[in-house]
Design a protein around this nucleic acid. Structure first.
Lengths: 174, 174
DNA sequence: CTGTATATTCTGTTTGTACTGAAAGAAACG
DNA sequence: CGTTTCTTTCAGTACAAACAGAATATACAG
């Protein structure tokens, strides 16, 4: 992947942009896009050149992608450098990302909500109302967690099957 | 909601933090948290004081929340100021946010992917591989869209029902 | 052991977003 | 119609995140 074609550029740029909107570093996202499109693993040096970013920046970003579990280092015979490749299974990739975001953000939020509910002083003015709101929010996050637990481990094709059942249920319901 | 209790502070701070991680402005998220907890609509002035941010900042942030459709202005008799209140239905709130993020981010991504696939020059080196990858990605986004379309409009309780069916399907499958 | 290639860490610098305060603009009131 | 009250817009500032490049560390070859 020495020089990028127009299409590749477009995809990489857009992916970087998407990243920023979801709180993911632009360069991290771009590198991922590049590796995703690349048929072979790439050394950091080449990534840096292709995307015109500093070698050090690539190093940091790759590490980030490795912690997400969607990029890994592979070794090429006769080359001392590490080569990096992206996971190619899109569903699995997003599953991993979602799993981690759940762990990093949803779970702590549930924890905070529980904490808040525990800390609520019933003598405080308006405590009832606050409790009501916090409980509604907590309920939502519990449901989302439940949903996640159900979904995880479902093979890809299964999701669609369930969706179709959903349609039926909906129709029956009205 | 003149002075905040400890619990309220904790919730608002955490919510602001969550916002930043999902690409939503901290102040915007904090204001939403405040309004969500508030039993009555609040004037901008009071929001600014409570959160210690500039009045103008509140103005901008409120507008943002209004475009999401989860906060609206209401009028209080004998008060010329606008008062703002948050939607209280958590499910509906998230539905609105997801709907808009889909429109702003998922839909354009689908469009770009289609564009890329259309622009792919089969004569270009490695075009086959690129196509393969882009199509996999496009397929994922189509599925997500389908999923969204199915979900939207489902009454809150229905989601759980479907989840339970999902469990059954899963069990049958193995 | 020494020299070279590669990777990582660290330190300023840059950049972009968020924010403030001032000024302009509306709306309500007397 | 002028004054007051409130809201929005705008221009500059502050701040945090991202980044480049240098310095350092690590691995390897001869």
């Amino acid at each position: 992947m020495p020089e990028l074609t127009g299409v590749q550029k477009q995809y990489i740029l857009h992916w970087g942009e998407m990243g920023t909107r979801w709180g993911i570093n632009r360069t991290v996202a771009q590198i991922h896009a590049l590796l995703y499109l690349s048929p072979k693993a790439l050394p950091a040096e080449e990534i840096a050149e292709t995307l015109s970013v500093a070698r050090s920046n690539v190093s940091t970003s790759i590490r980030e992608l490795e912690t997400w579990g969607i990029v890994r280092a592979v070794h090429v015979l006769g080359d001392r450098r590490e080569h990096y490749e992206s996971m190619k299974d899109v569903w699995e990739m997003f599953r991993l990302v979602i799993e981690q975001r759940k762990r990093r953000e949803i779970d702590p939020t549930r924890e905070i909500l529980r904490q808040c509910l525990a800390d609520l002083d019933p003598k405080e003015a308006g405590a009832d109302y606050t409790r009501e709101r916090l409980e509604a929010m907590a309920g939502f996050f519990e449901a989302v967690t439940e949903l996640y637990d159900q979904m995880k481990g479902l093979p890809t094709g299964m999701v669609r099957k369930i969706l179709r059942m959903g349609t039926k249920v909906k129709k029956k319901a009205r």
